[in-house]
Design a protein around this nucleic acid. Structure first.
Lengths: 214, 214, 214, 214
DNA sequence: GATGAATGAGGATTCATTCAT
DNA sequence: AATGAATGAATCCTCATTCAT
């Protein structure tokens, strides 16, 4: 997240708000709760943030920026559609796990954003989705991915996994993070392949093997 | 959903609350909003429901009951694991689409449930998950489904789609409902197959064909 | 107390209300609580009583009537002032113990009576007090009771004991009832005697002895 | 009562609540009534007090603390049991008159306290009672006080007067306060004396005289 | 930069009572 | 006589935000 040199107060408040919003939800967290957890006073908080909504939007903003920047970079790097798509999937899954608390808030508290901000979030998510969908589309045009199922369904099929992480993922070992990202990516790629294409299982095995070898 | 002979007041209040909770979230919906939309007085509402939380829990309860009963019946009916699992997937997807508003509330408002009720919902969802997981496990033992990925990941991979429906599904034609359920089921079944097993594409094509033919 | 042939519903409701008002106070008892305890419906209750306030006033009314009638009879019977006063004291103490729950309500819930009824209760209590005070006055005129302390203080000194019963009295044996009434009466009579009068202790010993002998 | 440096808001709210609770009872006094009389806003009140119950408990707490501290000091000072007991009686009567409104609330609104607080009040009152009873017990062992009546009755006989003050006491002249305390104490001490002991009336006369001379 | 007292609008809930049946 | 659904006014309390210091 690309904020520069924030004051300690701001940093503490942001951390406290993410934790609390993820834990009990935005509506069940009072500004008083946040400042108490951050160890600052209400006045101090309002010096750095305009409103409670600001804190919420900050969470959306930083996660959207990070993932969008990463996706742009991956696409920029180019390569085989399979490799690019795989990299994109792994990245969004990995960052979603790294910022799991933010993700929890992301999907559960959109209703609580002020209307203009909710619209901005929707717009930026759509931009991400479209960029991602273009990759899948390219794979379809290259005859690699199935086209018997609507593109929207395919895309939703992937993002549902990203979304759902906060409902079940719980880390036991640090390496679970990448492993899970790879597993889910493999599942998605498996379901994406043309069903009528003779396909060796090399892809899956190779990718899993690659990671196991690290 | 099988409640009989509810008073008109209760029916209207439930409908209004589902709509509003789905639309703007539980926290942004006042009891006043609900009774206004239902066209009843606050007192009348409190004659039938103990609290706002009651309305929320009712939504969870009815959806959980319906889907659990259906799953039990499907498993009871028995058959090839592929067919049973497929039927289970299609059913939960179809009912989730039918009760899309309820599902929206389900996944977004769990934080707002009172603690004991949240625990009950978690318990019942877990029971559903376990029953579903047992099916996948059976397929793995029969050598049909891949076991190179943790069972928990496989299960999450499916439920993420159920969960995510309310974030993207929008019906244009009534037949979309079953079609989408089948599409997602196919994607899941595709990703579930053993990667190293020689597999004809008959399954997918057949199932889609079957539905298209109805 | 002197109510004639009340319906079962009315009787049950009155009993339930006395018990609940004494247990948790008038304000903490809802009409719903009362009818539930009485085993009747709200409609039935409102058929017999105009309001919740009616139930409360009924308690005052019956206790005031009973004690006033008794006092009148005792005075009517006549006799030595010491004996009459003693009989009056014992009676009000005994009936207050018998109707302890009613007494609890009496002293704790006067604020909850509607204004006109509160005034009536005050008037009737005042009448009782005045009649009782006249007895003490008579004793003072006869030179038996001290007059170095204002009459109002002497009277309050007695009624305080009646009042306070509900705060401490707890019956272990049925005979405690009369015994306690006699004890308190003795204490009162002891303190009433002219301090400068040579006085044999016969009175006290005799009265206690009389009771012990029964 | 010894709270220092309370904000003006807190002071005003406490005063208003004592007055109103004493006047019409806790249940008939709304928070709105209190803040209106105190001339503050509801929000300001809730900045200083957690709940309406807090205000009520504050009244109990301050009166219990004051009287307990005084009793401890009187016993600490030591002396003849008659003098110590007399001082204890006069003190609790005088302070009860000084804080008559608080006392009114004390005895009439115990039902309205939250359960844990009600229990604490009962515990602290019991501690006071026990300490007082120990004094009377000591007098009995010294052969000064009658023991033909249960100790519990003797103690109740005294506290009933304290309790009852709010039902009848009304001050005309400031000196009534101490005079009444002495009168009631004399009545109690009179009734406490062994009935079979030759007793000169010097005690009473002397004590009244002492006070009149101040 | 920071404090924390104060605001005031709103929200969930309770409950005595009424009334059509 | 009895039911119990419905009313609607009142009540306690919460909380994001402001502002004087």
């Amino acid at each position: 997240m690309a904020r520069m040199k924030q004051s300690q107060v701001a940093t503490d408040v942001i951390r406290a708000s993410v934790e609390l919003f993820a834990l009990r939800g935005y509506a069940n967290t009072s500004v008083q709760d946040i400042v108490a957890r951050a160890g600052v006073t209400k006045g101090a908080m309002y010096h750095y943030f305009e409103s409670k909504d600001d804190l919420l939007f900050g969470i959306y903003d930083s996660l959207l920026s990070l993932q969008k920047d990463n996706l742009d970079a991956i696409i920029e790097a180019g390569g085989d559609v399979d490799d690019v798509l795989r990299a994109a999937c792994v990245d969004v899954l990995e960052t979603s796990i790294e910022y799991l608390a933010e993700g929890t808030v992301f999907f559960r508290s959109m209703d609580m954003l002020s209307e203009p901000r909710r619209k901005e979030v929707v717009r930026r998510r759509r931009a991400y989705n479209d960029e991602f969908a273009a990759l899948v589309r390219r794979g379809q045009r290259e005859g690699k991915y199935r086209d018997d199922i609507p593109l929207a369904v395919l895309i939703a099929h992937f993002f549902s996994d990203v979304h759902y992480l906060s409902y079940w993922y719980s880390e036991e070992k640090p390496e679970d993070r990448t492993l899970t990202a790879v597993h889910i990516t493999d599942l998605f790629m498996s379901s994406l392949r043309r069903a009528d294409v003779e396909y060796t299982s090399a892809g899956d095995d190779a990718s899993l093997a690659r990671h196991n070898a690290r």
